[in-house]
């Protein structure tokens, strides 16, 4: 997406409001779209992902469900096979365990098993991430789990403009798209404020293409590959390290499936150094995948060993000092970059 200043305008929205605006504009355009999930109606989504939609579109299109994720996620799949375009919310991604069969055995596989004869156009949006002491069952990112299983596109916006553009792209996509929004980028009034959670959002309809990463800061010494809330931590660290003469290039992946390998490889080819910052678990996940992509392309591309800043393989602890010790925080990111460029 390349918008001129005039097109982009100056109107600012939170990520949550940008998401809702994208959904609402699409619902105006296409009557086959409906929103379904727990507390998406009168409450407006626990993380404000559906605020105002009930008032605007009514209870036939903005539908509160029982706490029956298997039933309503499966219902969304079935409705999609009959030509509707559901947007269904799984309140926390951590809850996927009660309904994963519907996700990876049905939603993700029906198109393939049917030899392409049945399409499943739906958006499964879900809240991810920690940092506010919600404990091991309400703080995970888990995008690596969904990206690992074939048949689902996976998008992870980090800011308001991308959140709207990726939402519109996800709704118009003919595949199941898992839309993972970090609670820490939503701009919620009841959570620590991230200054970039409120930003300029174009008013019209536009898409951020799924599978396209964004170089959010250009640099020459080291490539920081990251996504979601960690993008903001990395931008803060990059600004600080610039004072020390370290020039960081920061890539916001925005999509995991499909993954924009080219943008990563071009940058690493230029800097010769890579640090992956990922709020998901470290082993068998995104950071290992990126290392493999670089090694498969050209092991000589890296002038220094790569570094990974992820959640070490431990459930997310509750107590603040413990949680902060395992998340990819400012100090861990800065240390990893300094070591890589040393």
């Amino acid at each position: 997406m390349a918008l001129t200043a005039t097109e982009a305008g100056t109107r600012k929205l939170s990520t949550a409001k940008a998401m809702v605006e994208g959904i609402a504009q699409e619902m105006e355009r296409d009557p086959s779209i409906f929103v379904m999930g727990e507390d998406v109606g009168a409450y407006g989504g626990i993380f404000s992902s559906t605020t105002g939609l009930l008032e605007r579109f009514g209870k036939d299109r903005v539908i509160d469900t029982p706490i029956s994720e298997t039933a309503f996620l499966g219902l969304a799949t079935g409705a999609a096979t009959e030509g509707m375009r559901p947007i269904v919310e799984l309140m926390f991604v951590d809850f996927f365990g009660v309904a994963m069969d519907q996700i990876y055995n049905h939603m993700a596989k029906i198109h393939f098993e049917s030899g392409g004869n049945v399409k499943v156009p739906l958006v499964l949006m879900t809240a991810v991430g920690g940092g506010y002491s919600d404990g091991a069952q309400h703080s995970q990112c888990l995008w690596g789990t969904f990206a690992h299983l074939p048949g689902m596109k996976v998008v992870v916006p980090s800011n308001p403009a991308d959140a709207k553009g990726l939402m519109i792209a996800a709704i118009r996509d003919d595949n199941p798209v898992i839309y993972m929004f970090h609670k820490g980028v939503m701009g919620l009034p009841w959570m620590a404020k991230n200054p970039r959670a409120i930003g300029t959002v174009p008013e019209g309809d536009y898409q951020v293409p799924i599978g396209s990463a964004s170089v959010v800061r250009a640099g020459k010494d080291v490539t920081i590959v990251t996504l979601s809330l960690s993008v903001h931590h990395c931008l803060d660290v990059a600004e600080e390290l610039a004072q020390e003469g370290i020039s960081c290039e920061v890539i916001d992946l925005r999509s995991l499936v499909p993954l924009d390998r080219r943008t990563v490889l071009e940058s690493v080819g230029k800097t010769g150094r890579m640090v992956v910052v990922d709020e998901d678990y470290q082993s068998f996940g995104l950071s290992g995948e990126l290392a493999a992509i670089v090694a498969e392309t050209d092991p000589g591309m890296l002038r220094r060993p790569l570094a990974r800043v992820a959640v070490p393989d431990v459930p997310i602890p509750y107590s603040r000092p413990l949680e902060q010790a395992v998340l990819p925080t400012h100090s861990r990111i800065a240390a990893a970059i300094r070591k890589t460029v040393a």
């Binding site: 039933a71 079935g78 096979t81 509707m84 049905h106």
Partner: peptide
């Protein structure tokens, strides 16, 4: 697990 998608067709 075939039942939930059937609900969606009915929906």
């Amino acid at each position: 697990e075939g039942l939930p998608p059937a609900l969606g067709q009915a929906f």
